[in-house]
Design a protein around this nucleic acid. Sequence first.
DNA 1: GACGCTTGTCAACAGGCGTTGACAAAGCCA
DNA 2: TGGCTTTGTCAACGCCTGTTGACAAGCGTC
Lengths: 189, 189
Amino acid sequence: MLCPGPRPRNAAATRTAILDAARERFAAESYDDVGMRDIARDVGVDAALISRYFGSKDDLFVAALDSCGDGSALMSGEKADFGRRVAHEIVFEPKKAEKLKGMSIMLRSIGSAKAAEMVQSSCTQRFFGPLEDWLSGPDATVRARLLAGFIMGMSVSRELGGGTFNIEPAECEKMRDRLAPILQSLIDG
Amino acid sequence: MLCPGPRPRNAAATRTAILDAARERFAAESYDDVGMRDIARDVGVDAALISRYFGSKDDLFVAALDSCGDGSALMSGEKADFGRRVAHEIVFEPKKAEKLKGMSIMLRSIGSAKAAEMVQSSCTQRFFGPLEDWLSGPDATVRARLLAGFIMGMSVSRELGGGTFNIEPAECEKMRDRLAPILQSLIDG
DNA sequence: GACGCTTGTCAACAGGCGTTGACAAAGCCA
DNA sequence: TGGCTTTGTCAACGCCTGTTGACAAGCGTC
């Protein structure tokens, strides 16, 4: 993706390229594991330029988080189908399940004190809030938290298996079939 | 807790003191956030001594993880009561819910690539495995994963709220009441 | 009491980090 | 063409980290 030759002089394009790379990195590695020089290398640029464009690593992190949009991707599609659809994605298509790059970033950095602090403020606003509104009905707040918690928890569980759930294919189907109605029950109210 | 005067010369006691402090630190902060000097200060000892006793930071980390025991604390008590009991702990007594210090350590360090790698190996053996055996019955593997995922997910959700769920007390009760039957259904089979 | 092993401290090292300021090159405008 | 601003690079700084080897002090043993 990184083509040779000097990078064309285009501040706006470079800036968004940096932001894209940062979002990708922060979604794949923890705040501490991601280095400015890593991101710079991804873009094909000097690390110093990032500091000039975004100020500090912290500022870049929140910019990357803010650029993820809200959880609308998760909430697209039929409500009646949500349980099966999301359960399937969680078990069989983890990459797709993490449409919300922001969720990956949260998960990656929840351990780091500094990153967690930055995440917390935007989390309720960008994630819990929209989900709550979308759910509506009784106890929407609580149902949203449970839903988000379960989805993130399954991501953690997968991560602990080393990227996969590390179970038989047949077990995967059973997992999906057990997960689906639980999620759906939280959607339905 | 750190009494003045020179530490009495007692290698065994010092070693376990270091291990205890490390377990506590790693359960409260991410692998990267915990420094050797932090742990050393907790114990009232020089950081160099830790290297001598445990080799490297990595070795200390796995030692701390290994010292957490298996998930037996989670599995004590009546099965018929599990849902309500654990749901209550998750919502109202997070510290108690994390009886399994190992779970906290996993959560804290799941983002860091290096720490995650160390965690993965012992996770199945020390956490998923015992839980699976305890559950027994049909699809025990899958149910164990779901159970563990949900519990950890609620921890993440709480963490994203900044240490609490950040919801009204009345909502907390509703959360508990919705969570309990879901957990219990996974116990019952 | 003197030796020797153990236990602990101290200072320093190499390496990595985010960040900074000086410099080079590209494009624009007169 | 000559200056000026923008865009990007480079080298270096200060800081922090885990780790090491040399040194000091305690304690049992001969």
